[in-house]
């Protein structure tokens, strides 16, 4: 079918629009990248877009010589690993159990698990409870409360229901018990959905900083994103970092001087780099999660 003039015009408009959108989407990031690689005092003159004018690594030297940033990175990595493992155990267990249609009290259990998605006690009662449970200033506060998410259970359960029942029956006839069926038959088939849930949990845990804001004031347990928040909110923190780094000789070049703006950029780039670098390759898993969740019930 021959395209009309109007349709051709629309196609051109569409491409221009999409390119423009991409530029808007990645410009702020490239801008930060350029600022983080540019000499701090030079940045203050303005006009940095996506290319650094005066190349320097000194901003990164500053953040890498900062002890609290390194420690918070370690804390973040530990919590990301632990909460991913725990989330998988908790959610797979729940999903596999509620998949069984004739499980006694199944409906009541589903309601108990579902209800918190709609009503919650709010920040302050949770805060008071955590104090009773000694979760304040405790690394477990990052791992335990977020381990169960109903949405993850739904995603896993939907995937489980798509597996042929014959598999389980065959294993049952072969004499496998429930545990063996789950670990030897079901889980190996679940890799895609487990990857999806694991990646979501990793991103959520990596990006989380409000947990620190609410429940942690012990600096050795701060998470990376919370440090970023501090850097953004308090430029004096940055100034101190710059001074400390000057004292310890962290900054290699004498001429290139980091400023709060450029150190902030370096910290943001550092904290988002793991996501930016891995995301394009893992995108299909993320999108799969949405697609599965969309067809729930």
């Amino acid at each position: 079918m021959k395209k009309s003039f109007g349709e051709k015009l629309f196609d051109v408009f569409l491409i221009v629009f999409m390119v423009l959108m991409c530029v808007i989407m990645i410009y702020p990031y490239l801008n930060q990248l350029a600022i983080s690689l540019n000499d701090g005092t030079d940045t203050m003159l303005g006009g940095i877009t996506v290319f650094p004018r005066k190349w320097t690594w000194s901003n990164y030297d500053t953040i890498f010589s900062n002890e609290s940033l390194i420690r918070s990175t370690v804390v973040t990595v530990i919590t990301v690993i632990c909460s991913t493992i725990l989330t998988l155990i908790v959610c797979v267990g729940a999903a596999y159990a509620i998949k069984k249609k004739d499980l006694p009290f199944r409906n009541a259990i589903i309601w108990i698990l579902l209800l918190p998605s709609y009503i919650s006690a709010g920040v302050i009662p949770t805060f008071i409870l955590f104090r009773y449970l000694h979760l304040m200033n405790n690394i477990l506060v990052y791992i335990l409360p977020s381990a169960f998410t109903f949405y993850n259970v739904i995603i896993i359960r939907t995937f489980l229901s798509s597996l042929p029942v014959a598999l389980e029956e065959a294993a049952y006839i072969e004499g496998a018990n429930e545990m063996q069926i789950l670990y030897k038959v079901i889980l190996p088939l679940c890799k895609p959905v487990l990857a999806t849930v694991a990646l979501w949990t990793m991103v959520a845990s990596w990006n989380d900083w409000t947990t620190t804001l609410y429940y942690v004031n012990e600096p050795s347990l701060f998470k990376l994103q919370y440090i970023i928040q501090q850097i953004i909110k308090q430029s004096e923190v940055v100034q101190k970092m710059v001074n400390d780094s000057a004292l310890t000789g962290g900054s290699t070049s004498v001429r290139a001087r980091p400023t709060s703006e450029s150190v902030k950029a370096a910290a943001i780039i550092f904290s988002t780099l793991p996501i930016i670098c891995t995301y394009p390759f893992l995108q299909k898993y993320f999108v799969k999660g949405v697609a599965i969740g969309a067809v729930k019930d």
């Binding site: 908790v90 267990g93 509620i98 918190p116 709010g122 009662p125 008071i128 381990a147 169960f148």
Partner: peptide, 18 residues
């Protein structure tokens, strides 16, 4: 295998409601 999820929900979602 359902127990961890139930315990977590009861402790962190229902207990604060009191």
């Amino acid at each position: 295998i359902l127990a961890p999820a139930l315990i977590l929900v009861l402790v962190f979602c229902y207990l604060p409601m009191f």
